[in-house]
Design a protein around this nucleic acid. Structure first.
Lengths: 229, 229
DNA sequence: GTCTATACTAAGATAGAC
DNA sequence: GTCTATCTTAGTATAGAC
C-alpha cells in the first residue's frame, strides 16, 4: 500500500496556507446549499468523532443524528449522503495537516538549518494530530474502508503531504545533514507512521508540549543509542 | 452493529467471564464444539482479511459466509456469534506477536548485547506483521470499534507485548547501551507505533528481508543524522 | 431546518429440514 | 455441516407536513 513519492512540485516554498493547492474535489455537491453554517460543521465534528470510535461502517446516519440531537432525515438538509459527509471529514483532516506543515516551514527564519526545519515539521504534525485528532484518525482508518472513488481522491491529497516530507528529507541529504539511508524511503515511511500513530496515545484534551516535539525530533535524528563506543 | 451492549443470551449461552491473564484462550466457548477443524480456521482467515479491508462493522456474517462459499447461517455451526469470531482473530494476532518475540529473544546466543537483542525483536515484529498481517491489522483497528468487554480483554494481552519491549529497553538502559530518553516511555511508544504501521506499506506477499530489519534497527538506534558535526 | 412516516435493503441470529 | 426460511432490528434515503 506504499504511497511513495510521486512528484508534485518540488517547490519547497508554500504557496497558500489555508486553501488546498489544487482544488481536488469537484465530485460531490450537496443538493441543499447549506454546508457552511455552524450546524453543518457540527455534523462534521460529530462524524469525525464517530469514525474514530466506531469506524466507517459503524458510523451511521442515525447515530450522527442522535449525537446532534436531531433525526436522521434532517441530516439530508445539510448533506446529500453519508459519503459526502465522510468525504468532507477526510478532506478537512488531510487539508489541515498540509496547511499546518506548509505554514510551519514558511514561518521559519531565513536560512534555518535542517534540524530546525525537521523539528518544525514534527511540531506541526503533532499539533495537527492534537487539534484535529478526530479528523486525522479518520483519514488513517478510512483508506481501505471507504468506497473506492472516495478513497482515490483522498489518496492524492495524502501524497501531497508525503511529498512535503520527502522534499524536506531530500534537501537535508543534499545539505549533508542526513545520512544516505535517512534521506527518504523506509526512514520516511517509518517516521510518518510513528507520527500518525501519535493520535493513539496523545491526550486529545491537551496540546502537545514543545518538549514532546523535541523528544521526537531527537529520537529520529539521533536515535536511542548512546554515543560512547 | 446490533450486538454491542448486552442481551446475547436469550438461549442461555455462556456469557464470557474474565479472560485468564496468560492462558491462551479459554474465553469464549462456541456452542458447537468444532473450532479446531480447517473449516473453522478458514473462517478466521477470511474474517481477518475482511476486517482489514472493511473494518469491524463492515465485516458482516453474510460477507464472511460469501467469501467462504457458504451461507451465513452455517457459520453458527462453527462459532456462536460474530463477536466470538472477532475475538479469536484478535487473540491470534496478538498471540502470534508475543510468541514470536519471546522466541526471538530466547533463541539469541548467551550474552547477546543490546543491539543484537533489539535487532532480533524488530525482526520478529516485522515477521509477525508479514506472516499474520491481516490478524495484526485487525488488532490495531479494532481497539475502539469493538464491544467494550472484548476490547478490554484484548488490551490486557497488548500490554503483555508492550511489557516485553519495555523490559528490553530498560535492560538496555541499565547496561548503558541506551540513552535516558530512549529507555522507554515516548521512545517505546513511537517505535511500536512505527512498527505496527509497517503493515500499511509492507508487501503482504513477500517476507520482510533481513535488510529491512537492519535498516529499521539502525534507524531507531542511530537516527538519521550524520555524525560529522 | 426539523419533523413523521415510509420504502427498501441488509444486519445478527434462530429453527428445523436434509 | 450446510441449507432455506424467517424473525427482529437497524441501515440509507425520500416525500411531504409544519
Amino acid at each position: 500500500m506504499a504511497s511513495n513519492m510521486q512528484a508534485l512540485s518540488k517547490t519547497g516554498k508554500p504557496e497558500n496556507t489555508d486553501a488546498p493547492a489544487m482544488a481536488p474535489h469537484r465530485a460531490a455537491a450537496a443538493r441543499p446549499e447549506s454546508r457552511g453554517d455552524s450546524a453543518s460543521v457540527a455534523l462534521l465534528e460529530i462524524t469525525a468523532q464517530l469514525i474514530r470510535d466506531r469506524g466507517y461502517a459503524g458510523t451511521t446516519m442515525r447515530r450522527i443524528a442522535a449525537e446532534a440531537g436531531i433525526k436522521a432525515a434532517s441530516i439530508y438538509h445539510h448533506y446529500a449522503s453519508k459519503d459526502e459527509i465522510v468525504e468532507r471529514v477526510l478532506d478537512r483532516g488531510i487539508g489541515e495537516a498540509i496547511a499546518h506543515m506548509r505554514k510551519a516551514i514558511a514561518d521559519l527564519p531565513e536560512g534555518a538549518g535542517f534540524p530546525q526545519r525537521f523539528r518544525a515539521a514534527i511540531g506541526a504534525y503533532l499539533d495537527t494530530a492534537s487539534q484535529f485528532g478526530t479528523y486525522f484518525v479518520a483519514t488513517r482508518q478510512l483508506l481501505t474502508h471507504v468506497p473506492p472513488e472516495l478513497a482515490e481522491r483522498h489518496r492524492r491529497r495524502r501524497m501531497e503531504l508525503d511529498t512535503l516530507w520527502a522534499d524536506m528529507l531530500e534537501e537535508g541529504y543534499r545539505e549533508g545533514a542526513v545520512t544516505q539511508f535517512g534521506k527518504g524511503g523506509l526512514a520516511r515511511v517509518f517516521m510518518l507512521g510513528a507520527l500518525s500513530w501519535s493520535t493513539e496515545w496523545m491526550d486529545p484534551n491537551r496540546k502537545p508540549s514543545d518538549e514532546m516535539a523535541d523528544v521526537v525530533a531527537t529520537l529520529f535524528l539521533g536515535g536511542i543509542e548512546t554515543r560512547n563506543h
